[in-house]
Amino acid sequence: MIIHGITIILFLFLYVIAIVIGRSRNLFAAVMLSGIFSLISACLFVIMDAVDVAFTEAAVGAGVSTVLMMIVLNLTSDRESPPVQPKVFPLLVALLTGGVLIYATKDMPAFGDPEALIHQSQTTNHYLWHSFEESHIPNVVTTVLASYRGYDTLGETTVVFTAAVAVMLLLGHVRESETPPKLINDPIALVGAKMLIPYILLFALYVQFHGDFGPGGGFQAGVMFAAAFVLHGMVLSPKHTLKAAPALIIEKLVALGVLLYAAVGIYCLFKGGNFLEYDVLLSHGEKPNPHGQHIGILLVEAGVGLTVFAAMLTLFYKFALRGKA
């Protein structure tokens, strides 16, 4: 009951923020508010028990996105030009789409309804009841993500890689700013950040490997890793960071992450299994083979983490090193 109340309030917040963002011409305010928006949605995810999603949302939505958007705002104006199309159009779009969505909820099973087919289906049952015996990993989400639907995750990793490639393609050859943005002349920030960075990295490693047991995994860890470097780049300067993590190497890491993932799959082929069939890893022919699953998941998670980390950092580099037009 209480949870319901909290949820409703949080949703109210969301509506309000969305409307305010929609009406605001001030982009800085919009960025700030969208940071808040993603924090609230992360809270909602937590309440809905989708902790892995909440994790990602917090790391990407509230953290890295805000950073990148700030950088972009820095490169352009923070005032939005008045819209060209009639104002009624966006409303129309929202009403129509919203109408359909609302209509869709009519026959929707109630949230958490145990009778809902989604909870009854063969698929869900298999995930819930067989995943541990098959992979010895308590966090079902990780098993589903990295093994059952590992191919999707390969795809998602590729999406990240694609995004990185896209950015490199578009911004690959930008002139670097002649006058680097001023350093923050604040020793507190500097020291605080410097102290924090190792812990962030450590925490990232924790997230990477703790994924088997709790919320976490390659995606979140990658972002955390990148966040540490981003922090470094912000409090010192991106050029300093480049020395620690040269752009070229980072770019290659993006590719390597995907390759690592795919290589695991292909190795499975060579071992006589299907693509991404971890059972054949460390195999003595038995099935299910939790060891194989385990090592497979570990490796692909590493691949994911690598790609996400490198991609995030690349994005940061590309934007942060770009001079104001």
Partner: peptide, 9 residues
């Protein structure tokens, strides 16, 4: 952590 980084940004 993220909050901190965002503010720094």
């Amino acid at each position: 952590l993220m909050n901190f980084i965002a503010i720094i940004a």
